[in-house]
Computed example of a mutant assay.
Amino acid sequence: MFIFRTLILLAGVAFGSYALAQQTFSSDLADFRLQTVAEGLNHPWSLAFLPDGSKLITERAGQLRLIKNGKLQPEPIPGVPELVVAGQGGLLDVLLHPEFADNRLLFLSYAHGNSEGMTTRVARARFDGERLQDVEVIFEALPRSGTSRHFAGRMEFDSDGNLYISVGDRGDKPRAQDTRDDAGGVHRLTINGEPAPGNPFLTDDSVNDTFFTYGNRNIQGMTRHPQTGEIWTHEHGPRGGDEVNVLKAGANYGWPKVTYGIGYSGIPISDKTTMPGITDPLHYWDPSIAPSGIAFYTGDLFPEWQGDVFVGALKMRKLVRLRFDNKDVVQEEDLLPDLNERIRAVNMGPDGALWLLTDSSKGKVYRMVPAK
């Protein structure tokens, strides 16, 4: 059970210059505070930490925002590529190049529309501290469609500098098993948009060269394991069947051939939860929590959480802590159920704190720090 109380601070606080309301919580392993760093954001979706301590935040409504010196800057950053805001689509992830401090490169995923329909795009740009420059589209999922859901859009780099991009099934289940269709999988590219060297299907004409995995419904959490370098993801199931997975080259994760969930109408989608040739999840939720955002805790502020996985939940409005022993979940704890916020993103900050984004028209940026 969780107990929380609200403290109104009138001056600076111990872990930074954030002087806004703080909420204190108790959990099984550690007591912590939530510091409100920024608020009034329009459906914030993603967060990136700049070398100078500033933060970039995407708003699904189409704006890229900057927190500088602890304050949300009033004007959005200009230069964002043309995009469409519809349904679940808009401006999605922002990811810095691993050598951003030297090359100033970042990557944006977003929904794009034209006369042929909508799709997921990724653009590379250079951020000079004030605006985006040299914006270039490096990936576009094809074919387009008229649906406005399941764009996915989460991105991550591996230790070799390859870029992973998730694309949802766009609400059309069979697309996730069609390997000539970019929907319903994870693509691995170079920063120039070419298929990454060593991709598993480069010599298979029946599969698009950029595919790394397929059979994925709608991945909205992606992170790199701090020790093994593996890319971990989670994805939305329908009514039940949200999954945590480790990406394996060439793997088929089964959607919609297998699932732990059922259709929103209550009609079964499949009578199988596993089958030969399908990679099973490490963990699943039933009923669905609608996961979004994932991070390993690697900081020093909470030694009790070292190595644990944190997952945000939209539908269930909570933060889930998972402890793994190898690839088996040995502990699961629900945090922040009384906060009543849709948690969209979870990030491990360079300051040792966990950072959260809440999904609403008045979204917030929270920072989790020790209670004392």
Results as ranks from 00 to 15, higher is better:
H112N: 06
V94S: 02
R149F: 02
M155T: 08
Q23T: 10
T203P: 08
N340Q: 12
G90M: 00
V84A: 09
D334Y: 04
R170I: 01
L34G: 14
R321G: 00
R317W: 03
R239T: 10
W255P: 04
H150P: 15
K272R: 14
T190F: 10
E156G: 10
S206W: 15
I3S: 15
A14I: 07
V244E: 02
S206H: 15
D338S: 15
V94Q: 02
S26D: 02
I262Y: 08
N208V: 03
R175F: 01
D182F: 08
D52K: 06
P350K: 11
G293C: 07
P238A: 06
D128Q: 10
L91W: 03
Y264A: 06
I262V: 14
S54K: 01
D158W: 12
I67L: 11
Q23F: 01
N218L: 02
G87Q: 11
E59A: 02
G293Q: 10
G70R: 01
M118R: 09
A48Q: 14
I343V: 08
G117N: 04
D178N: 07
Y297D: 01
S265H: 07
Y260H: 10
K364T: 06
K248Q: 10
P200E: 01
T213Y: 08
L9H: 13
V258E: 00
I267N: 07
I77V: 11
D181L: 04
F139H: 04
G250R: 02
H234W: 12
E230L: 12
Y284I: 05
L7D: 15
G171R: 04
T274G: 11
E130N: 15
M316H: 07
L189W: 05
V330L: 08
R154H: 09
A141M: 03
S360G: 12
D328H: 14
I165P: 00
G237L: 07
P51I: 06
T298E: 14
E39R: 05
N192Y: 07
T6L: 09
P291Y: 14
L92K: 00
I294N: 03
G62F: 05
R344W: 14
L20S: 13
E332T: 15
A183K: 06
